[in-house]
């Protein structure tokens, strides 16, 4: 129990630290951005007075230190400020719809990667035909060399344009119709992540097969099928959880780019839009939410890892 509690609070502390780090980092970075945010909101022809007024309204004329303390105070109040571009609109309410698109995409890709990766990895480790294993490894090597958005381009051409079984982009705006627009981009992300999982599972399964407890189970008369399902599989899956945790950031990055290929209204397009209009609170909010959700994901990965592996929980 102690180990679990320690991990839990360690990650909570990390969430706080990361939130602080991101808030301070983005506030400083925003100060470094050339150009005047108020000017880019109001346009080049706006009068100097109105630009000055807007700057003071947005708190951009305060000294950096005061801006930092304000940002941190607001952060602890759960207030991410209001958008510059959409005047008066709350940043959180502006980001949440986009975040839900990206989160849905990442969740589907994660599930597909885990399921297909475990199945393929285990099959390659168990096959008695070395040529199948070799072919599988070659395919994995090529897929691992394929960035998600390139896989997206290829899938888009094959499934959406040639076969016409998926839309070439866009968004329904309501469930379950959204799934129609999500499966192809999710598949594009699975090409890389699924191969990564498959490779790790194959390796772990081969190591497990070589372990003496598998041999020992056989000499107790345990049938092959049960050895695979109860002894090899659980041990082969173990490295998948931390692997997915480590790749959470890469998954979000990949999702943001793949969204651009499939014109999904996710965090990617919101970010590009906010960058273009110098909507700094929105940029800051996206950075913060993305970073915090990655740490939360890692917390979940830690906890499920402990649930799966009794050696990580010290009970005495």
């Amino acid at each position: 129990m102690i180990a679990i509690v320690r991990t839990f609070w360690g990650r909570i502390l990390q969430i706080v630290l990361v939130a602080l780090f991101v808030t301070i980092g983005t506030t400083v970075l925003i100060r470094l951005v050339p150009g005047d945010p108020a000017r880019s909101i109001l346009g080049a022809r706006a009068s100097d007075e109105s630009v000055k007024a807007l700057n003071s309204e947005l708190g951009l004329d305060l000294p950096l230190f005061e801006q930092l303390t304000n940002a941190v105070l607001n952060l602890f109040r759960g207030d991410l400020g209001t958008s510059f571009a959409f005047r008066g609109q709350d940043v959180i309410s502006l980001i949440l719809p986009s975040l839900s698109v990206t989160a849905a995409l990442a969740a589907i890709a994660l599930t597909l990667s885990a399921v297909s990766g475990i199945a393929v990895g285990l099959a390659l480790a168990l096959t008695k035909r070395p040529e199948l294993d070799l072919a599988g490894r070659l395919v994995m090597t090529v897929l691992l060399a394929t960035p998600g958005f390139m896989a997206g381009l290829v899938l888009l051409y094959i499934f959406a344009i040639n076969l016409g079984i998926a839309p070439a982009g866009g968004w329904a705006g309501e469930w379950p119709d959204n799934a129609k627009y999500l499966w192809l981009p999710a598949l594009a992300l699975t090409a890389y992540l699924g191969s990564l999982v498959a490779r790790a599972v194959r390796q772990a399964a081969l190591e497990t097969i070589g372990e003496s407890f598998v041999q020992a189970a056989r000499t107790r008369g345990v049938p092959r099928r049960r050895i695979v399902m109860r002894h090899v599989l659980p041990n082969a899956i173990l490295p998948v959880i931390p692997l997915l945790g480590l790749n959470a950031g890469a998954l979000v990055s990949g999702a943001v780019i793949v969204e651009a290929v499939f014109t999904l209204p996710g965090l990617g397009s919101r970010l590009v839009e906010a960058m273009a209009s110098r909507d700094l609170p929105v940029v800051q909010g996206i950075a913060l939410l993305a970073a915090v959700s990655i740490v939360v994901f890692n917390l979940l990965a830690d906890l499920s890892n402990m649930a799966a592996d009794p050696r990580l929980r010290k009970t005495h």
């Binding site: 991101v22 950031g249 979000v252 780019i257 960058m275 950075a287």
Partner: peptide
């Protein structure tokens, strides 16, 4: 630690 938790692409865009 802080940087690794950050989605790389967002940082790069900024």
């Amino acid at each position: 630690d802080g940087l690794i938790a950050f989605p790389f692409i967002i940082l790069v865009l900024m």
